[in-house]
């Protein structure tokens, strides 16, 4: 080769070698920095979970879940009960419109309304929860005169949960194979028949997974409840309005800044309960939505 083209033999060999080194260094630095970023994230996750679990296990005992709050001590039974009432109530309120929106977006995505609803739902996810809380305060607590109450807190949480249920239902219903609908329509079934007897039942596991994730969000919320549900040391007396309700996330926020060890114990125990609940639901949802283990596999098979 060199004899054919003398110019080639005079090329400095150092340049390509230097470039090879540069490329190798670029590669090593790139992978190193990416690994470092991943490690930072993983370390933070472990650090947060370890803080919550270690402090929480030290504070959690039988008394904690069987007694109400007394001043800055006692237990969290009132808050556990309140969290369940507010979150389940909020989900129950959000389910009819959320599921309807999911059905509409997945099944009747033809006109102008579906894109509009999808856009509003996606933007609603991003509205800060404190804005929804303050909206609940001025409309429900003040204008309607409900006071701090389970109804006001439940409605605030319902607005938070709405877009999550909408999105989850839409995704689940879209997974139902097209042929199922076509077959039903070909047999002369009406819209309502197809949706109620074919698509929603088939998509039900996915819809429920979305609802569970919305429940996890609702249980972890604080800001929308501070000025709608208030706080109470007592168990709920069944009144929907004019009766404040306690909830776990309030206990985390309010009691950690108190100077007493009993108050800190309440906050740590509440943090462990909330985080544990949220993570168990997330893991369950992950298993349910997983390609290999979840309900989608059964639908395929």
């Amino acid at each position: 080769m060199a004899s054919l083209n003398p110019a080639l033999s005079t090329l400095p060999l150092a340049a390509p070698r230097r470039r090879a080194w540069r490329r190798r260094i670029f590669d090593a630095c790139g992978w190193g920095l990416c690994g470092l970023a991943f490690l930072c994230l993983g370390a933070a996750t472990v650090w947060i979970l370890a803080t919550v679990v270690l402090h929480g296990l030290g504070a959690l005992n039988w008394k904690m879940i069987t007694q109400g709050t007394v001043g800055t001590g006692g237990g969290l039974m009132n808050a556990i009960e309140g969290t369940l009432i507010l979150a389940l109530g909020g989900i129950a309120l959000a389910l009819p419109p959320g599921l309807a929106a999911g059905i509409y977006l997945a099944e009747f995505d033809t006109g102008w309304l579906a894109p509009v609803i999808r856009f509003f739902s996606d933007v609603l996810v991003g509205v800060p929860s404190i804005v929804i809380g303050y909206f609940g305060y001025v409309t429900l607590v003040e204008d309607l005169g409900w006071g701090f109450s389970a109804a006001a807190g439940g409605i605030a949480l319902a607005i938070i949960a709405l877009p999550y249920i909408t999105r989850g239902s839409e995704m689940a219903i879209r997974q139902v194979p097209r042929e199922m609908r076509d077959a039903a329509y070909a047999l002369g079934a009406s819209d309502s028949r197809v949706v109620m007897s074919i698509t929603v039942p088939l998509a039900l596991p996915g819809v429920l997974t979305g609802v569970l994730l919305a429940l996890a969000i609702a249980v972890g919320e604080t800001a929308p409840l501070l000025y709608t549900a208030g706080w109470s040391n007592f168990l709920w007396n069944g009144h929907l309005i004019q009766e404040p309700v306690g909830y776990l996330t309030y206990a985390i926020w309010a009691f950690i800044t108190e100077p007493f060890a009993s108050a800190h114990a309440l906050a740590y125990a509440a943090a462990l309960l909330v985080t544990g609940f949220v993570l168990v639901i997330s893991i369950f949802a992950r298993l349910a939505l997983d390609e290999n283990t979840g309900w989608r596999r059964r639908m395929r098979g």
Partner: peptide
């Protein structure tokens, strides 16, 4: 999972 941890727990930490 960090995204699922409630805001108030981040605050506590």
């Amino acid at each position: 999972m960090l995204a699922a941890i409630p805001s108030v727990v981040f605050g506590l930490w």
